[in-house]
Design a protein around this nucleic acid. Structure first.
Lengths: 336, 336
DNA sequence: CTGTTAGCGCCTTCAG
DNA sequence: CTGAAGGCGCTAACAG
């Protein structure tokens, strides 16, 4: 079996209490004593049992990351970065994903009662009053990404403005028949992001006296395939769009395939723009809105760390990061 | 504070022992008793403290997944799926990624002594004798993916054959100047995959009396960018290649960009093929070798689960899954 | 079928 | 600066 703290105590000639202090770097241990103990631990190849430690301290030293659908670039990026900074600070991280069957609230309640984590990063998922209360009552530190509440600190970009920028880009190119490939086909949770982006789109349409056509709003489920399907639907409309703004790069790329399979040219016949700036977008020449996804993970993790460290950063700490237009080759002047 | 087992015992009128048994679904509990206890637990919103439980049982009910560089499609896919099946079976999962600074062996040793996991899925990473011993001594159940040892069960495809298939496809199209964009620039761990694929490539070259040109082997680091850079290097060679076989789709896509930026056409001027069948590949029309990545995660998790359950499946259980050529539009006849 | 009694390995007062 | 002792919440024999 692996060595316990008692063996280290015995070998070093000190009590387990002193060994515990020494190993954790606490004060009130004589330097020579500490050396002695560290050496003994080293020789025994000893390592603190994290679970026993947790039981004794009440701190789990693990945090959760909650994402809606883990198999998307955005979520992978955010969680990967967050994991890296968290684990660099000694935390274990558990990824939770909301699958179809469990509702967000159930999962949240389960996490809250499971005594498994000290804190959690909630990505993109909206929270209602109940959810917030459950989290607060469970004494969990929480940070949200791309969703804001008035209870927890958050990191996000201004989706409304970003969508306006995207739409304006298209309008400025002379497009008037501009469609959107929006969010989820079924959206029981009412994700705020697609809504904000659509509002930005509508705003710019109105600003330019362009009438919104309901058939120009087709959901794409944030997937390649969904984007491709949405596009075939959009192209089947009489007076089909000359430009499409997809709410994620994956959907935009799906749309591109549909367009090209039909023998249409991009951007000569139709312009396409995405949102996110997926790692692959640069390589397929997709015009898009770049949002600092990696930073979301980085900053969210850092905030969570400081909250866990007890640094009471005056409560509501909502960071808004800039998004920007990246023009590549899938958008161009509207056809004559 | 959250309720403890004692409170449930008190409220239900049974001892903690019986409560423990009832809650875990163990036998030797009268149905009515169990009902009673479950109800009490429910009312208290009680949930077993996993860390206390771990301490008492010695089983952590958590497993690790070790990947080299987590920010790649392949690893995300494998680990996401594996996480899903593992957590469906009550396990927590911790992702470990080998970063530049820590060596594989260090990490492995750390994991082995950390007492944190019962088992681990090791993806793509080669293991030497020492590594294997460390893992075995720590009494960890291990399953490997895309790397085989004679100590642990594994899942993989036949990279040699798959690479031969890929190369033959190119040869059959009339190509003779076939380059590869291979693995890591620096490969201290000596990953077996790029080696196997290169062997397959060389084999087919030889089979067809095509001489291997060393300048036709450029590493691409398995990234979009690396693939793009490798391609510019390949195109700067006198008598540059008419076909390129990249060892991952990301690299192939990077290469495509370089080619097109230079005004060359694909596949008329140059053919490109990848490996993996990345989710995006279908949408960019990339010819590639499809390997069942999701299944790797699924099967590896299942095997690990059965090993953890003590089902001694006669030791070496090496599953080899089929890979297949998927012809799309980036490969074509060699230019005249 | 149920309860009692020891721990699991570590941390934390509280003395010294 | 160091040690003794009790307890974190749960499980595992062993009795009954």
């Amino acid at each position: 079996m692996s060595p316990t703290i008692d063996e280290v105590a015995e070998r070093s000639g000190f009590s387990t209490a002193t060994v515990s202090r020494a190993l954790r770097g606490l004060p009130n241990v004589a330097p020579s004593t500490r050396d002695h103990i560290l050496r003994a631990a080293e020789q025994l190849n000893y390592s603190i049992d994290p679970y026993a430690s947790r039981l004794a301290t009440g701190r789990t030293m693990t945090v959760g990351i909650l994402v809606p659908l883990v198999d998307q670039w955005f979520y992978n990026k955010v969680s990967t970065i967050a994991e890296a900074v968290l684990s660099a600070h000694g935390y274990d991280v558990l990824r939770y994903s909301i699958t179809g069957s469990e509702s967000r609230s159930q999962l949240l309640r389960q996490i809250a009662t499971s005594k498994r984590v000290d804190g959690i990063i909630i990505v993109t998922t909206p929270l209602d009053q109940d959810d917030e209360r459950v989290l607060t009552n469970a004494d969990l530190s929480v940070v949200t990404v791309e969703t804001v509440t008035d209870s927890f600190p958050s990191v996000a970009c201004d989706n409304l403005t970003a969508a306006m920028t995207a739409t304006r880009h298209l309008v400025n190119l002379g497009h008037e028949r501009i469609a959107i490939i929006s969010g989820l086909v079924e959206d029981p949770m009412r994700f705020p992001i697609p809504r904000d982006r659509k509002r930005g789109y509508l705003h710019v349409l109105q600003e330019n006296d362009i009438e919104f056509r309901p058939e120009f709003d087709v959901p794409g489920n944030f997937s390649y395939e969904g984007g491709a399907e949405a596009m075939t639907q959009l192209l089947s409309v009489r007076q089909s769009p000359t430009a499409v703004f997809a709410f994620s790069d994956e959907m935009a790329i799906g749309a591109l395939k549909t367009i090209r399979d039909l023998g249409l040219r991009v951007p000569e016949d139709i312009s396409v723009m995405g949102f996110d700036d997926h790692d692959v977008s640069k390589y397929v020449g997709l015009t898009t809105i770049h949002q600092p996804v990696a930073q979301y993970g980085d900053i969210a993790a850092s905030i969570l760390l400081s909250v866990l460290a007890g640094e009471t950063g005056d409560g509501g700490f909502n960071r808004e990061l800039p998004a920007r237009l990246v023009i590549r080759s899938t958008t161009g002047a509207a056809p004559a």
